[in-house]
Amino acid sequence: MKSKPKIAIIKFASCDGCQLTLLDAEDELLAIADAVDLAHFAEASSRLDAGPYDVAIVEGSITTEDDRLRLLRLRDECRWMVTIGACATSGGIQALRNFADHEEFIRAVYATPETIHSLATSTPIASHVRVDFELRGCPVDKSQLLEVLSSLIAGHRPRTSTESVCQPCKRKGTICVVVAQGIPCLGPITQSGCGSICPAFDRGCYGCFGPTVQPNMAGHSQGVLLPRMSERDAVNLLRGFNAAAPSFQQESVRLWQITQTRDSTR
């Protein structure tokens, strides 16, 4: 891109944590503001220019009909769309509703359920419109976000690794918590990007960056999770920030069905 790209940062259902990652890039923020035209970034500025935009950076998932229509309009107003974070790329933690009775949740939580107009599911942006690049993470990683921005400025596709969380662990010298401590970990089937933080603090990976390109979910459950935890606990581990990422979802549903079949035969 030769001239300064006009960028809008737009949110849907989300906690704003990924936008905060951008604000957290204090050392780079002035350079970013200098290199791009931040036309719409409500988290940082009251300047809210209307489209069209060169790039829309989208945080959050689609959980209401209003948001779905707003997203369709946004797609028409931007040349490229980049989604950031687990909500935008897989539906986020709020996609736990996809596995339950949405109406029941509304009745249990709200004093006046009739005023709530939300969809029965939380879905990623790419389920509704064409997305040019997805950046994973809950929240996204600062250096990966800067890579996305700098590649937009330089005009090439962002280079983010698709390797497993295990590989940064090994390069850093972090000792495998599965092998040395028997801790269940989603690292082998989770895409890297966070810098493999949790295993360095004696915790298993929570899967914040979603599944790898070709995750062997059943093999992972069989070899890593189930020798160390119950099927129910494995379901809960898989139903985290990327619960509705297709491979995580299919595996948690499969494990859940195993527990149901066992309960019914008791």
Binding site: E28, A31, S150, Q167
Partner: peptide, 24 residues
């Protein structure tokens, strides 16, 4: 799991990749 742990701990595996990393 194709997680690559075996190749990372192997004392003879030698594969590497080269990336160009740049600032904003």
């Amino acid at each position: 799991l194709s997680c690559a742990n075996c190749t990372m701990v192997c004392p003879t595996c030698f594969c590497s990749s080269v990336d160009e990393v740049h600032e904003l």
